[in-house]
Design a protein around this nucleic acid. Structure first.
Lengths: 215, 215
DNA sequence: GGGTTGTTAACTGTCGACAGTTGGCAGCGG
DNA sequence: CCGCTGCCAACTGTCGACAGTTAACAACCC
């Protein structure tokens, strides 16, 4: 029932370290000490090093020769460049989803949208995990494992960049509308419309992140 | 002059191992023995393991717990799924290139095309490295480092899958025409046309690889 | 006093060795 | 003759220790 059930210490360390980075317990800019972290995780430096390199390949850590690893800090240029990649990938996913979706896919997407609106209306907070769930459901509908994997990696980076950034209720409401429009386009099998909506949606998210990054 | 100038043994091992895999010196399906390869490279197992994990993150190797790493074998389904990702990335690159290209970019692209035609006419072989050079020049014109990096990884996998596959002169000529059409569209700044040509080009390459994979 | 150089401590990069697991092979029983 | 069980070799996973490098601090010279 737990998908990431790694037997090796290195595999476990990857998951633990990933959570530490994404949850902000190792804030951006912090250097990672191998011996200290190895002791904290109760493992040796060998597996930990493999885990660090793995996270670096996911770009959740930055390696500097002879100076160890540190969590990257958010840059405006980084956000812009990253969203170019995200747009390319998720627009393609939206296009494929519109062409391949089943009724079950549409039902799942609608369910996530409904759940999002409910929590937004009641608690007035749009939890990010529901946003991620929506984009993941769209990826499932696209049925393209390689694209899905790459989107997962990019979204991880977005989560890291977004950590510590303020929320913006009007933006969240607009995102909900975008999601609804996406479901409509996908349900109708309108690939062109789906990509157009996705492009607009990501442009909005990108703009919100850039403005939240300024002060 | 040599960009990948790694100081660490692990970094060097990554480059050596990558060449070994891409040049077919470790054929697909072959298992990699850590102690043997470490001795062959004159290094210890530690750095080699890090190199192996790195190549696995680039999907040039497949890791099986307690059974080591092996070079993946080409599957038709794999080619299809991979080209979905490649299409998404390179179409976006073509679109950005059309919007951002400079005269120098166009000159470089034209030069690569001319060189390709010359070798094709004289030696009747269309060297793959010129094909790669063209796509790389297009990426430079797109000026999107993240997309460029991902395309580089995908193209590596394509090279691996294509290793051992027969060439097809008519297909090569069509590819040359595609490249010329791409240069024209990019030079004209016609993003829509550039993505359309790229999509068609990649569909052709994908079809050629799938037919060459059948027997 | 500012800049430079020598020193030192901390950390990464690397190595060799040990332990645990896997797959194959031989021997045994049916 | 076929299937099963127990052993064995080979390999991976992990650990602790050593060597090389970096950066900061302190002493020294100008």
């Amino acid at each position: 029932m737990t998908p990431p059930v790694h037997l090796s210490l290195a595999g476990q360390a990857v998951d633990v370290l990933r959570d530490l980075v994404l949850n902000g317990e190792i804030p951006p800019g912090t250097r990672v000490n191998e011996v200290e972290l190895a002791a904290r995780l109760g493992i040796s430096r060998g597996p930990l090093r493999e885990a660090i390199r793995h996270l670096a390949s996911e770009q959740l850590l930055v390696l500097v020769p002879h100076r160890g690893a540190h969590v990257p800090t958010a840059t405006a240029a980084d956000v812009a460049a990253l969203f170019e990649l995200r747009t390319a990938l998720e627009c393609a996913a939206a296009e494929l989803a519109a062409a391949r979706r089943t009724d079950a896919d549409v039902a799942r997407l609608s369910a996530v949208c409904a759940e999002s609106r409910r929590t937004h209306h009641s608690g007035e907070r749009f939890p990010h995990h529901l946003d991620l769930a929506f984009h993941r459901a769209l990826l499932d509908a696209a049925r393209s494992p390689h694209i899905a994997e790459q989107v997962r990696l990019v979204q991880q980076r977005v989560v890291l960049l977004r950590s510590g950034l303020a929320d913006d209720p009007p933006h969240q409401r607009a995102s909900l509308d975008d999601h609804d429009a996406l479901v409509t386009a996908v349900a109708a099998g309108d690939a062109e419309q789906a990509t157009a909506v996705m492009r607009k949606h990501l442009a909005r998210v990108r703009a919100q992140m850039l403005t939240a990054l300024r002060p």
